[in-house]
Each structure stands twice: as C-alpha cells, then as structure tokens.
Design a binder for these strands. Structure first.
Length: 274
DNA sequence: AACACGCCCTGCGCGC
DNA sequence: TGCGCGCAGGGCGTGT
C-alpha cells in the first residue's frame, strides 16, 4: 500500500482531473465493509463542487463547497483510479464518484483495509481519525528537538518509533528501513539511546527519502499505481528494502532482514552498526 | 504509560 | 497441476 509519497503522488495527479468539478452521483458498488463502513449519508457529497485535495498523514481529504470533506485512506491495497464515462466496475471496486466532466473516480481495494468517510469542515478539529496524529514530516513542527523529546522515554526500537503515527506520520515500512540505513542507525537501537546528531540526521533523511520518492512518482511494489494506472519508480532506488541477501550498495555486505512489530525490516549490519 | 500481539482481508509466489 | 503456507506498502484494539 501507499506510504506518504504514494498518497502525495495520487493527490497531485488528482488535482487537474477533479478540481472545480461537480459531483453528479455517488455509487456504492459493493456493500462489503472496508476498515469501517462507508457512511450511510455519503450522498451528502452529491451536487457539491470539489474545491481542493489535501493530505493529512496517509489520508486524502477532498474538500467540497458544501463544507463537507470526503476522507479517503487506501490501507494496504487501496487504489484510486480515474476512468471515463463508459467504465464498467471491476473486481474489488467498492465505490465511485461520477463527475460533471464525465470522469469517474473509483475506489478499488482488494484487502479492504482502507476507508471512506465524510466529516463536516467545522468538525475537522475533532475528527477522531486525525485527533492523535503526530507531526507531518514536511511541516515546520518536525524538528530535532521535537523528536528528542518524543524519544526520551522510548526504549522500543527506533524503527518502531518512527513508524508510530502518534509521533510522526507518513513513514511506513519501506521508508522506515530506508531512512535508518541512510542515517547509519541500526533498526533495533532503542529510541532513547540515539545521540543528538543521530536524531538530527535521521530527521533530515526521513525528509529526503520521502521527497525523493515523491519525485520518482512513489514506489510500485506489486500493484501500486497512480490514478492513471502508471507505476512509480522509486523502488529501483531502495538501498535495503526488499534486498535481503543482496549486496549493500555502499559497502557490499549482505543485506539482512529481521522482523519488528510483525513487519519485515531490512538493514546493512556493517553500515548500521553503532 | 509503554509495549507485544493479534486481527481486519485478498492475492501472490514459493516449496512440496 | 494443485495445495498449503507465509507474506504484503496500515492501523486499531486488547491485554499485561
């Protein structure tokens, strides 16, 4: 599924297709439950005009002129696709929106870990899914001091800590391994044992790796694609993710894998050894 | 509070 | 060829 760079790529590619267009009709294609059910009053977005497409963490927020926000999360396997007016629903299509430019915005999600929700603009500050989210990696609040303060009492492995959405959003399993490699920090190192300069380096590398991935259109493993079905290319630039048994691109040591919090974690034992 | 773990699902690739 | 198993980009709820 998409991490922040993939969601951001989707957001950007949506802009010139749906902005300022009117939602003519919403269509529930299946009644299957996603992470939560599609709201019963989802028809509230019909006849509204799309004013902007924003992102918070890995959520897309489509803001409408009737003060209602459409919120979409893609979970592990969710996709948004744009298809023209004679589109015919495909397997795992769950929901679609027909626009006044004859395009359909389709939500497809085989594993159904994603979600579709709505929230009044006035209630966004109380919106439960956003309430406990940590800082955005591209915001000015994402400082070294902020991280040091958050890491202070964390004995857990740093890899789990940077994936903790209550601290920092947008860093998923791929970019956690990648940013730790770039920072030469072992994934198992307890968060509270990082030195000041390591935290600073990690912060910079998180920003850099996410930015780089966005510039490459995200990473396409298995079936991720943008709204036009196009793949991203950042997966070709991975230093460690998915490279177990291959040689480190820096020191030629063998890339190792371990499991942390149930998720595969890749690292170079030689480069990340402090 | 912090942390370990299980679970929500389908699909794919692998070994046998 | 077919089966069972493990694993997959996320995030929440539960228990200790």
């Amino acid at each position: 599924m998409p991490e922040l760079p993939e969601v951001e790529t989707i957001r950007q590619s949506l802009l010139n297709r749906i902005l300022n267009h009117k939602i003519i009709k919403v269509n529930r294609i299946t009644n299957l439950k996603l992470k939560q059910h599609i709201p019963i009053n989802i028809e509230l977005i019909e006849r509204a005009i799309i004013l902007s497409v924003e992102r918070r963490s890995k959520y897309l927020i489509i803001k409408l002129d009737n003060k209602v926000n459409l919120i979409i999360h893609l979970g592990m396997s969710g996709k948004l696709l744009i298809k023209d007016h004679d589109y015919f629903p495909q397997k795992h299509d769950h929901f679609s929106i027909k626009l006044d430019n004859n395009l359909n915005l389709i939500y497809n999600d085989p594993r159904r870990f994603g979600l579709i929700d709505i929230c009044d603009e006035a209630q966004m500050n109380e919106y439960s899914l956003f309430k406990n989210l940590g800082v955005e990696p591209f915001s000015s609040n994402f400082t070294t001091d902020y991280l040091i303060n958050k890491f202070k009492n964390k004995k857990q492995p740093i890899k789990l800590t940077i994936m903790d959405n209550n601290i920092l959003v947008g860093v998923g399993n791929i970019y956690a391994s990648e940013s730790l490699f770039l920072s030469k920090i072992p994934p198992l190192k307890p968060a509270n044992q990082l030195l000041h300069h390591e935290v600073d380096l990690l912060r910079k590398n998180i920003i850099n790796v996410l930015n780089n991935a966005i510039m490459h259109g995200g990473s396409s493993l298995k079936d991720y694609s943008n709204i036009n079905g196009e793949k991203g290319y950042f997966q070709n630039n991975f230093y460690v993710y998915g490279r177990m048994g291959q040689n480190c691109k820096i020191c030629c040591s063998e890339i190792k894998k371990l499991v942390l919090g149930g998720r595969s974690t890749f690292y170079c034992h030689n480069c990340q050894n402090n």
